Simulated assay, not measured.
Amino acid sequence: MASKNTSSNSRQAVQRSNSDSARWIAGLLLLFIGLFAAAAVFFSFFSWAADQSGLQKSVEERVTLGIEPENLCGWAGVRLGMLLVDHSFGLFGILIPAMIVLVGVRIVRQRPLLFNHSILSLFLIMILGSLTLGFAFADRWSLCCSTGWGGAFGIASSALLRTHIGAFGTLILLVGGWILTGVFINRNFINKVNEAGNVVVDKSGKVVEILKHKVVPHVRA
Rank of each mutant, 00 (worst) to 15 (best):
T147C: 06
L72V: 13
T6F: 10
S204T: 10
V200N: 03
V59C: 00
F45P: 03
D20K: 15
A136C: 09
A26I: 09
K4Q: 04
A2W: 05
A98H: 02
C144E: 09
F45L: 12
G182W: 02
W178H: 13
L113G: 04
S157I: 12
A38I: 01
F32Y: 00
R111E: 15
G104D: 04
S3T: 10
K212R: 12
S10A: 13
S3M: 12
C73W: 09
R79Y: 12
V105C: 13
T181E: 08
G151M: 11
A37W: 11
L113M: 14
G169I: 09
R106W: 01
I127S: 07
I185W: 01
M99H: 07
E61W: 07
H213W: 04
S47R: 11
N116P: 00
G66S: 01
A39V: 13
S10D: 04
P217I: 05
R16F: 02
L143N: 06
A22Y: 06
G34H: 05
G93C: 09
S17R: 15
V193H: 00
S158P: 01
N5F: 09
K214S: 06
Q110P: 00
I119L: 13
P69L: 05
A76L: 13
M82G: 04
L171E: 06
F92L: 12
V63D: 10
A138S: 12
S58P: 04
D202C: 03
N18H: 06
N191A: 07
C73K: 06
K212M: 01
S130N: 00
D202E: 07
I96M: 09
E195Y: 00
R162H: 15
H117Y: 05
W24D: 01
L80T: 04
T6A: 14
R220I: 14
S17Y: 10
F123Q: 03
A2V: 14
L80Q: 02
G182N: 03
N198M: 11
I119N: 01
L28Q: 04
S204A: 13
S158V: 02
A22W: 09
L211N: 05
V14I: 15
A40E: 08
P112E: 09
A221E: 05
F135T: 02
T163R: 11
N198I: 05
S118F: 14
A13D: 08
H117P: 01
V215S: 08
N186H: 06
K212A: 06
V59L: 13
V108R: 08
N198Y: 10
